[in-house]
Design a protein around this nucleic acid. Structure first.
Lengths: 115, 115
DNA sequence: CTCCGTTATGTTCATGCAAACATAACGGAG
DNA sequence: CTCCGTTATGTTTGCATGAACATAACGGAG
């Protein structure tokens, strides 16, 4: 499961967090939205809706798609997509490393994990 | 309105972002949950629910309350509350300053603001 | 031409969540 | 004892969200 304490980047009302980052990773690795969805236990429609949401946010799409048969159809993460992913990861790493003290201080105040 | 690009800290499913931070600020400034809610254009119930949610997250409450009349009743932000607020702000500042490059890079890729 | 895996889209249903409204308990001030 | 502003809680209703199901379009492989 996801770590107890994490960060989400927000573009207005639209969140970009661990879920969308992992989806982009899976699309890059699998070469299709449906395969990525399967690998993540997510319905194709759900995955596709998330992709559409992300693409709508940016001037150029983060994921490009192609219809068609087994060898032709598929999806690829664009350079813009890789860039967004890289900058998102950089921000998360920044917080995880240089913000470790603050994160630990907050964690120490948290109530014991509930069932 | 809130900035187009911001961060929320997540404790499991529970978010802690600009809204709750501002609510804590207002409670500290106004001395009561209801006054804080009024100042923020938020119903008392909404504000109280948020306070309850935050208090449940931590080992000791972030806000303590007292019932009663005009001079007696009210709410105060505890030391734990001030600490959480300070560490949250520190993380946000860290991202805003040292993550400025990544934030700018992402912003540059965003589609022009829609209506 | 058929088949298969993919993208693309729509519909329905359940669930969660927030807003609005309503009410009770409290306790000092006067 | 009454009043007032506060904390505290419950109920209802509308809206947004997600899950599940269904269907269409596409296009290369064979």
């Amino acid at each position: 499961m996801e770590p107890r304490l994490h960060l989400r980047l927000y573009f207005g009302e639209i969140p970009f967090g661990p879920g969308k980052a992992a989806l982009l990773d899976q699309i890059a690795a699998q070469g299709s939205i449906s395969a990525a969805g399967r690998a993540m236990g997510m319905s194709y429609k759900r995955a596709w809706d998330l992709v559409e949401e992300m693409n709508a946010l940016f001037a150029s799409p983060l994921v490009v798609t192609a219809r068609g048969g087994a060898a032709k159809g598929g999806a690829q993460v664009t350079e813009a997509g890789q860039a967004v992913l890289a900058h998102y990861r950089a921000l998360m790493d920044l917080v995880a490393e240089q913000g470790a003290g603050d994160l630990a201080a907050i964690s120490a105040l948290l109530a014991p994990a509930k069932g």
